[in-house]
């Protein structure tokens, strides 16, 4: 496939806060493309899997045979960024309850690990996305917790000493929602990753 001039990043738009991710990506100067069918993945350089309800997303993915298409996308060297439910779908293992996941990043995730909406919270955490650590505004909504981090996984941000953002090679995950804040630092980091992979491919 010949490369277009613009970087195109897909946002899985089956259900969830895909519109806010698309807005954040556009602010970073890339073209955001809503993806509702596997065939639409052929046109993108990377993919964001947004927050939403992971059980709902699994059902919608199943109906369209998304799993092989996502594995193919990952195999083709395209970066994937999952927030909250997106992280749950990408993890190696999922707890409470156990459910199917893609296993593209070697972490164990516990669903709704802080409790119900009453326990959702906003906080500030430290991230290391470049040479210097930065403070990030983080919104946790019925959020999962990363309970185990595999040897190949790099922790990029912490809140109260726990990993809340991590990366293994081309797969980036966060338990919080950068798309709900005004800062585009996390999306910028992902866009840079996509641009580097695209240039190298």
């Amino acid at each position: 496939m010949t490369k277009s001039a613009v970087v195109r990043i897909g946002v899985l738009a089956l259900q969830g806060d895909f519109a806010l991710h698309a807005r954040a990506l556009e602010k970073c100067g890339v073209k955001a493309v809503e993806v509702r069918k596997p065939v639409e993945l052929d046109q993108v350089d990377g993919l964001v899997m947004p927050g939403g309800e992971s059980t709902t997303l699994l059902k919608l993915m199943d109906a369209w045979d998304f799993v092989p298409a996502l594995e193919k996308l990952h195999g083709a060297g395209k970066p994937i960024f999952g927030t909250c439910a997106g992280l749950i779908l990408l993890a190696r293992e999922v707890e409470s309850p156990t459910q199917f996941s893609l296993g593209l990043i070697d972490v164990t995730v516990e669903r709704n690990a802080y409790g119900r909406q009453r326990e959702s919270f906003e906080a500030s955490g430290t991230a290391k996305l470049g040479p210097d650590p930065i403070q990030l505004d983080m919104v946790f909504i019925r959020a999962p917790r990363i309970r185990r981090v595999g040897p190949g996984v790099q922790v990029l941000a912490e809140h109260r000493g726990e990993p809340v953002m991590a990366r293994q090679d081309r797969v980036l995950v966060a338990t919080f929602h950068p798309e709900l804040t005004d800062s585009t630092k996390v999306h910028r980091y992902f866009c840079d990753l996509v641009e580097r992979c695209r240039a190298g491919a």
């Binding site: 738009a13 089956l14 259900q15 969830g16 806060d17 895909f18 519109a19 806010l20 927050g51 939403g52 309800e53 709902t56 909250c84 439910a85 909406q117 959702s120 919270f121 906003e122 919104v139 946790f140 909504i141 019925r142 929602h177 709900l180």
Partner: peptide, 16 residues
Amino acid sequence: ADRKHIGLAEMLKGGV
């Protein structure tokens, strides 16, 4: 309303 509460509604978008 708080951002975390509006945020939960954002997570339900496109859903039933």
